[in-house]
């Protein structure tokens, strides 16, 4: 008897078992669908979280304000030396003129302020540098660098470094980001573990109902894979069906939550994530489903396969 015939027979019995044990298959699929939904939800949530954190991190920066009489060349030299620091991601320069027009724009509905500005002979605003670090935790060392520059000869051109005002906010944000990452991973790990155990146990119970059958197969002299194979096939089918259900049902949910998620998170859109990251979602959901189904079946059937 060829391998091919054996494989075909095992696959057929797997499918037959899947269809004829309708109720057992249904409950296994329901539990597995729930498990895969949890995993899919966590994938989306973690993407949303990291996107939000990335945005928040981008909003944090340190501004250095220069005296009105500071030479533009000196400011640009400072920009270059800041850019050479390994911690610095970006330094953007705002000239005195730019600062003035920004100010006007910001206060365009405030005639009183604008009139006060007109009374002045010259531009009261200094140039400034906005510094963005690669990591929020690195602002401390950048601020230390700026302080050192401030103390150094010629440092009098710096009038203000706003890090110390922002420090409390930055520290809190750093702490929140760290905690939410750790907590997020812990919760995700716990949920995934719990749902995998539940799915595993359901499939085990499904196979427990077939233990007499397994005994009979052994008695007739069926080889190990002839007994296990159909159960593993059925387990894979649970995974495939559950995975497809999750992927299909996710679409209308993403469609429905799309605009709301964008309002809530800023730029993160569930629907965009679903459509652009579909290959990843497909791989993770189907892969987990198939692996979970096959492995649970295999481990469960091993228990009832003596000899």
């Amino acid at each position: 008897m060829t391998m091919w015939v054996t494989t075909k027979r095992i696959a057929r019995y797997g499918l037959i078992g899947f269809l004829r044990n309708g109720f057992v298959s249904l409950s296994a699929i329901l539990i597995m669908t729930t498990t895969l939904f949890v995993i899919a939800g966590l994938l989306v949530a973690s993407a949303a979280l990291s996107e939000t954190l990335r945005q928040l991190t981008n909003k944090v920066d340190v501004n250095v304000y220069f005296a009105t009489d500071a030479d533009e060349e000196q400011v640009l030299a400072m920009q270059r030396s800041l850019e050479s620091l390994p911690e610095v991601a970006l330094v953007s320069y705002t000239s005195r003129e730019q600062a003035l027009s920004d100010f006007r724009e910001r206060h365009k509905n405030d005639q009183l302020t604008l009139q006060a500005l007109e009374q002045l002979d010259e531009n009261p605003l200094g140039a400034s540098l906005a510094i963005r670090a690669k990591e929020t935790s690195q602002y401390e060392s950048i601020a230390a660098f700026l302080d050192a520059q401030h103390q150094a000869p010629g440092g009098e051109i710096i009038t203000k470094v706003n890090f110390h005002q922002n420090k409390a906010a930055i520290d809190r944000l750093t702490a929140i980001i760290d905690t939410s990452r750790t907590a997020g991973f812990a919760i995700a790990g716990f949920l995934i573990l719990a749902s995998i155990l539940i799915a595993f146990n359901t499939i085990r119970l499904a196979i427990y109902t077939s233990r007499d059958e397994i005994g009979v197969m052994n008695l007739v002299g069926a080889s190990r894979w002839y007994v296990r194979g159909p159960f593993v096939i059925a387990g894979i089918l649970y995974g495939v069906v559950s995975g497809l259900v999750v992927l299909i049902v996710m679409y209308p949910i993403a469609l429905w939550l799309g605009p709301a998620s964008e309002r809530f998170f800023g730029t993160f859109n569930v629907l965009t994530y679903y459509t652009t990251q579909f290959p990843l979602l497909f791989l993770v959901i189907m892969g987990t489903g198939i692996l979970l189904g096959a492995l649970s079946s295999l481990l469960a059937v091993r228990r009832y396969l003596r000899a």
Binding site: R9, I16, G17, R20, N21, S210, E213, V216, M217, V220, G221, A222, S223, Y226
Partner: peptide, 17 residues
């Protein structure tokens, strides 16, 4: 007997094995 298999399949199973 194997409860989820027909009479035919029950006997065929022993032959396949």
């Amino acid at each position: 007997l194997l409860p989820t298999k027909t009479v035919y399949e029950n006997i065929a199973f022993a032959m396949e094995v």
